[in-house]
Nucleic acid binder design. Structure first.
Lengths: 248, 248
DNA sequence: TCTGTTCGTGTACTTATTACACAAAGTTAA
DNA sequence: TTAACTTTGTGTAATAAGTACACGAACAGA
């Protein structure tokens, strides 16, 4: 087994989003510190999925490694949303206590690179419960305690997702290979926190020639079955408008 | 004088853009290494404006410090465009030789945070020649030798500028407080590498109510004098469309 | 006063955006 | 087998935005 040396002052943190066809969720890891003798819980809160980078890996690989460990998945959509180096980002008392406790030789001053990860919920679910990892609706985060500056990082990631989703076809990363238009609409609504008119939304999608109806329909639903669609990256690449001209 | 300790494995690099009313330029620092005895030039190329961060400053401050040193200006528009941590980004022979030469205790493996800086050319020019710093047209970069991975970083910054300029009113950071519509158009054209129809461009600008005509006109030009305009951030903030709905 | 230069404007056509309501196709349960 | 339930899928009319395209007006300088 190869032992990797960590870089003590550089980490990556992944904000992992998933969509359950109802709402947008984020993956968090529970953090718990108990008093050695009394067993009393001293810290119980949540953190993003993150860790230090290794000396022999680059940033993207570090993020991919962390996600692989957490979800078992490779080839997850991963994109940076920023680097964070505030002097006090790791220095709250609870966080210092935690770092003392795990005592892995991390520095006092850690710069972290934030990664946005989008995963297709239908491909995962299983391996999560092995560890104290679970999904939380993004609307719930505001009321939660998060470690370090992770609540701030989460909102940075969400903002980044919201702007990217308007301009790149990344929403499909959150959906299975085929999906209905209602699911697509719910996804956009969940990400952007708005709602759309169904007919107008579909008119728009109809202009995206890379969202292609399949022969398949829904089965076994207690209502008119919906048509399935798929996202074609090839068609996207070929037909994407070189929108050179939407100034603000 | 306070001596700051540097963080040996974290730097920031600034891609500083300026606009001279004709073309888009980028600020580069000349790097020269001569043989100690013969005086023979061993390395002569250019680098971005960058340096290691200090232990007692955050990333944004480090970038601001570097720009202040180079241009004398405070309050420059500064925004991250990414973090770069490839294992080999600093290991080309010429770059190793350089790092040996300056011998400042930098690490072999440096993660850098890229900052995009936009400056109003009319406010600077002076202090540049103090140091071996000068403007280069962005179109010339492809034919230049740049240190480390700085050519790559430059193109990353350019891409980031190109996408941001379509969606945020940051172009104005590159212009003086008042400007003509032709200057604004030339700027968009220089940044995006396209050209626009004059009438259509103006129709568009007319929808941006935060671009406001002033009483002033150009003077002393050998043609019909142009109206000056200004950018109002207040009006922008008030009237900006919450464009919740431009899916791709 | 003539030349050269850049400024500033309008129209006709096509394409997108918005607001809004109801029948059709399934399942389930009586 | 029928009725109730639920979600799907569709169209129109009116407004706004995007595109392609050409010429007179205002100034400096010779």
């Amino acid at each position: 087994m190869i032992v990797h040396k960590i870089v003590p002052n550089i980490s990556v943190d992944c904000v992992v989003f998933g969509f359950d066809f109802e709402k947008l969720n984020v993956l968090l890891v529970e953090r718990e510190l108990r008093d050695e003798r009394s067993g009393e819980v001293k810290i119980r809160d949540h953190t993003l999925a993150g860790y230090h980078i290794f000396e022999d890996e680059d940033l993207d690989s570090a993020a991919a490694r962390i996600l692989k460990g957490l979800t078992g998945l490779d080839n997850i959509f991963l994109e940076q949303f920023g680097a964070y180096g505030q002097l006090d980002r790791v220095s709250a008392p609870r966080d210092k206590a935690w770092l003392d406790y795990i005592n892995k030789g991390f520095a006092d001053r850690i710069v972290t690179v934030g990664y946005l990860a989008l995963i297709d919920n239908t491909k995962v679910t299983l391996r999560l419960k092995e560890r104290n990892v679970s999904w939380f609706p993004v609307t719930m985060i505001k009321d939660m305690e998060l470690a370090f500056d992770h609540k701030y990082l989460f909102y940075e990631a969400l903002k980044s997702l919201q702007s990217k989703v308007k301009v790149e076809p990344i929403a499909f990363e959150l959906l299975p290979d085929y999906f209905t238009l209602s699911q697509l609409q719910k996804l956009y609504e969940a990400v952007l926190g708005t709602s759309f008119d169904k007919r107008n939304f579909r008119k728009r999608v109809a202009q995206m020639h890379y969202v292609i109806p399949m022969k398949k329909k829904q089965q076994g639903v207690a209502h008119k079955p919906a048509q399935y669609y798929l996202f074609s990256r090839e068609v996207y690449e070929k037909t994407r408008k070189r929108h050179i001209s939407f100034i603000i």
